[in-house]
């Protein structure tokens, strides 16, 4: 794609939105769109420009079965991903277990102390959300095992061919350091390298960018930064 030809890009975006860009050209343009935030914006612009043409068409009430179909599809979708509730349940169970262990501790047991240490080793890192939207991810750190846990809470879905990537922002002139890909749903855990661990320890903030599938190919953010959040150690 010749990214230095804005008029060509704009013309293709217009024909894509119009629907007259077809076949292999349409598929190729969709790939370029997935790779370039700039092209995506041009498509959005043309969508916004032309959509008024479709606003005046006579509305047609859908059959009742349509809503039933939507509910069923969403039910299957939710069932196929680790739902938030299912992620939270183990936490509730852990708390109950901790309480039980504390009770047992009255009788005495080193095991209790071990469990408590486990629980205390989990520290919040960041709550990632838009200016007005819900929390999208909760980031936690298992200090004891130097592992990062990212929990998807609001069903963020990257565009096809893209991934969300988390970055530590050490501040000053230091470059962002990747902390890995974020999940669209459910949770991901990974052990941090020493470099990642140090960068996160120094970071005042973390950020999320949209990257090609699998993460930035350069080691630095290449896509738009979608979210920035305070590192909770500063809170």
């Amino acid at each position: 794609m010749k990214h230095d030809q804005p008029e060509l890009i704009d013309a293709l975006a217009a024909e894509y939105v119009l629907g007259t860009l077809q076949g292999a050209a349409r598929r190729r343009f969709e790939r370029w769109r997935a790779e370039s935030w700039h092209i995506d914006r041009r498509v959005e612009t043309w969508d916004g420009r032309l959509i008024a043409l479709a606003m005046g068409l006579t509305p047609l009430a859908p059959a009742p079965a349509v809503w039933q179909g939507i509910e069923e599809k969403i039910r299957l979708l939710e069932a196929s991903r680790p739902a938030v509730e299912r992620i939270r349940r183990p936490r509730v169970a852990l708390r109950a277990l901790a309480a039980a262990l504390v009770l047992c501790a009255i009788v005495g047991g080193g095991f209790v102390a071990w469990r408590m240490t486990e629980s205390l080793s989990l520290q919040p890192v960041a709550t990632i959300k838009g200016a007005q939207g819900p929390v999208v991810w909760s980031i936690e750190l298992d200090v004891r095992h130097q592992r990062l846990r990212a929990v998807a809470l609001a069903g963020a879905v990257a565009r096809p061919g893209h991934s969300f990537e988390l970055w530590a922002l050490p501040g000053g002139n230091a470059a962002p350091v990747s902390l890995g890909i974020l999940p669209d749903a459910g949770q991901l855990e990974r052990t941090l390298s020493q470099r990642q661990w140090s960068a996160l320890a120094q970071a005042g903030k973390v950020a999320v960018s949209l990257e090609p599938l699998g993460g930035s190919p350069t080691g630095a953010p290449t896509g738009p930064v979608l979210y920035v959040a305070e590192h909770k150690k500063n809170a």
Binding site: P62, K73, G130, V157
Partner: peptide
């Protein structure tokens, strides 16, 4: 069209967090 409309609302459900409000 009604079949495609179902996909539209599933997509809205999945992508709602990406909408830039305001």
């Amino acid at each position: 069209a009604e079949e495609a409309l179902q996909d539209v609302f599933v997509s809205i459900w999945q992508r709602a967090a990406q909408f830039e409000s305001g």
